[in-house]
C-alpha cells in the first residue's frame, strides 16, 4: 500500500497544480480578450500603438509566467507508481466510499476473468492448430498475426467444376437424386431427395456446404412464387432434429484442401438416413423415444441412435 502514502504526500502539489492550470487558462483568455477589444482611444496614433503593444506584452508575459509555474508544479506531482499491477486504476481503491462504488473490486474481478479467458483461448488455439483438418486451422495461429485477407483458392472454383463434382457424387448414390439450382449468382443450392424419406436443401459456397435444411418428402420446398424456399423449417419434429444433426455433421466433415471429399463424406453420412423410420436405436433397441425415431447417425459407423442414446 506504498502507493497510498506516496499519493497522499503529493495531494497538496495536486491542488496547487490545479490552481496553476486555472491561472494559466485565465491569463490566456485575458490575452484574447485584450486582442478582441483592440486599441484604446489616445491623442496620437503613435501613443495608441505604443500603449497597445506594451499591454499585449504584459499579458503574454503573464501567460509565460503561469506556464512556467505549472511546469514546476507538475514536476512536484511526480509520476504515479508503476509497480501496481493495474497501474493508474489502482487509484480507484483510494475511494473512501467503497461500499457505494465497488468499482475497484469489480475491476479486479473483470481483470481476472479476462486473464483466464486469454489463457483458455491460447490453449484452445494451440489445440485447434494440431487438428489441421478443421476449417479454420490456418487462420488461428498462436502468433498474433492477422487473419489472411486472401480467400482460399477453393472458394473461387469455376461453376462448371462444381457441377461436375456434384453430378459425379450423384451417380455414386442411386437412391439419392441431387438437383442443382443457382438462384442467386454462382453459388449453388442442392436439393437432395433421399428415397421417399426426406428432401434436404444444401446451400453451397463454391464446394463448401454452408447450410442445410431437411424437410419431409411430402413437404413443399418452393415458395408461392415458385422459388426455392431455403428458410422455412420442416413442420415435423423428426426433420427438425435431423436438420440439427446435419448442421453438426457439416462442422464435423472438414478438409479445406479437398472440398469434394468433404461433400462426398457428408452425402455418405446423409444417405444413412434412408432407413430413418426402419432402424431401431442401436443402444436401447426401440424405435421411438418421446415420439421420435433414432435421428442421430454416428459420424464413423453410421449407426442409428436416439438423440439421448448416443455416446
Amino acid at each position: 500500500m506504498a502507493d497510498v502514502v506516496n499519493v497522499g504526500v503529493n495531494l497538496e502539489a495536486f491542488s496547487h497544480a490545479i490552481s496553476g492550470i486555472q491561472a494559466l487558462r485565465s491569463s490566456v483568455s485575458r490575452v484574447f480578450e485584450f486582442l478582441k477589444d483592440g486599441m484604446k482611444n489616445r491623442e496620437t496614433l503613435e501613443g495608441r500603438e505604443k500603449q497597445f503593444i506594451a499591454e499585449f506584452q504584459d499579458n503574454l508575459q503573464a501567460v509565460n509566467r503561469d506556464l512556467n509555474e505549472l511546469e514546476r508544479l507538475s514536476g512536484l506531482v511526480g509520476r504515479p507508481s508503476e509497480s501496481h499491477p493495474l497501474h493508474n486504476s489502482g487509484l480507484l481503491s483510494l475511494d473512501p466510499v467503497q461500499d457505494k462504488t465497488p468499482l475497484y473490486s469489480q475491476l479486479l474481478q473483470a481483470y481476472k476473468w479476462s486473464n483466464k479467458l486469454q489463457y483458455h483461448a491460447g490453449l484452445a488455439s494451440s489445440l485447434l492448430n494440431q487438428q489441421s483438418l478443421k476449417r479454420s486451422a490456418n487462420q488461428m495461429g498462436a502468433s498474433a498475426k492477422r487473419r489472411p485477407k486472401v480467400q482460399p483458392s477453393t472458394l473461387v472454383l469455376p461453376p462448371q467444376y462444381v457441377d461436375d463434382v456434384i453430378s459425379r457424387i450423384g451417380r455414386m448414390f442411386p437412391d439419392m437424386t441431387i438437383e442443382l439450382f443457382r438462384p442467386n449468382g454462382t453459388s449453388a443450392v442442392l436439393l437432395v431427395t433421399l428415397g421417399k424419406v426426406f428432401k434436404a436443401l444444401l446451400v453451397m459456397r463454391s464446394l463448401f456446404i454452408d447450410r442445410t435444411l431437411v424437410r419431409g418428402y411430402n413437404e413443399n420446398n418452393y415458395n408461392e412464387d415458385g422459388k426455392l424456399d431455403i428458410w422455412t423449417k420442416s413442420k415435423y419434429q423428426v426433420f427438425q432434429k435431423v436438420t440439427d444433426h446435419a448442421s453438426t455433421a457439416l462442422l464435423h466433415y472438414q478438409l479445406p484442401q479437398m472440398p469434394d471429399v468433404v461433400v462426398r463424406s457428408f452425402m455418405t453420412w446423409l444417405r444413412s438416413y434412408i432407413k430413418l423410420f426402419q432402424s431401431p436405436c442401436q443402444r436401447c433397441g426401440r424405435f421411438l423415444q418421446d415420439g421420435l425415431p433414432p435421428t442421430w447417425r454416428d459420424f464413423r459407423t453410421l449407426e442409428a441412435f436416439h438423440d439421448t442414446c448416443r455416446m
Binding site: 421417399k196 424419406v197 426426406f198 419431409g216 418428402y217 411430402n218 415435423y236 423428426v238 426433420f239 432407413k275 430413418l276 423410420f277 426402419q278 425415431p293
Partner: peptide, 10 residues
C-alpha cells in the same frame, strides 16, 4: 405418422 409416406418404412 405424418412425416412418412411409405407404409413399409414405418
Amino acid at each position: 405418422y405424418c412425416p412418412c409416406v411409405v407404409p413399409g418404412d414405418c
